[in-house]
Amino acid sequence: MIQASPDVILVNEQDEPIGTMEKMAAHQSPHLHRAFSIFLFDKQQRMLLQQRAHSKYHSAGLWTNTCCSHPYPGEPVADAAARRLKEEMGISVPVEKAFHFTYQASFDNGLYEYEFDHVFIGEIDDATIEPDPAEVAAYTFRSIEEINADMATSAHKYTEWFKIALPLVAQHLKANTPA
């Protein structure tokens, strides 16, 4: 059994593990580490967004994708995604790895993100959403078009990784949707 850990998995540009580091230390200096992001859509193709809790150590109160986090050392990324989706949003639905990307961002509080991000996509039906209030302040469903329109005038309301990932998710969906 994989044990909960405050450490993240440090990786190289090919996502090969090269060590571990305490999560906050990895965010205080930009060390590339493994992460995942989950994007769930309903039958109307609206994305389930969450507003991060106001107590989060960075990007507090900002809107973002359904769920994101880091796998524990030794934990397969797909297992971590399923685990964290249940912990954070109270949802258990199948998700599939769609693609990955690497990004860097810095924040006003001196923290950094430098992540090799595995992106998972899934469909949410009538599942009950029961977010953990320590993680999630609110949630909503929006179409990609609605999100893009809002980001055009209010980009400051969204997390940095979401601004990078959203066009990649839209491109992936377009390329993998039957005509």
Rank of each mutant, 00 (worst) to 15 (best):
A82H: 01
D125M: 03
A134M: 04
A80N: 12
I144W: 02
T102R: 14
E113M: 07
L85K: 13
Y72T: 01
A105E: 08
V136N: 05
H100E: 15
A105R: 02
A105H: 08
E115M: 01
G74L: 03
P94C: 08
D108C: 01
I144R: 09
F120C: 11
G74A: 01
A127Y: 12
F141T: 00
S69M: 01
E75G: 03
A81P: 06
E130C: 04
A127W: 12
Y72F: 13
V77L: 03
Y103I: 00
G90E: 08
V119E: 11
D132C: 14
E130S: 05
S106E: 13
T140D: 06
T66C: 01
D108W: 02
D125H: 13
A80W: 13
V93T: 15
Q104N: 06
Y114N: 15
F101I: 03
K97S: 14
Y114G: 04
D117H: 05
F116E: 09
P76I: 00
P133F: 01
P131Y: 11
G74T: 03
E113K: 10
D126R: 14
A98Y: 09
E96A: 11
I124F: 04
C67V: 10
P71I: 10
K97P: 07
G74W: 04
D125G: 15
A82C: 01
E96D: 13
N65C: 07
T140C: 13
V95F: 04
L111C: 10
Y114L: 08
D132E: 14
R84Q: 14
V95T: 13
N65T: 07
K97V: 03
G90Q: 08
C67A: 09
P71E: 11
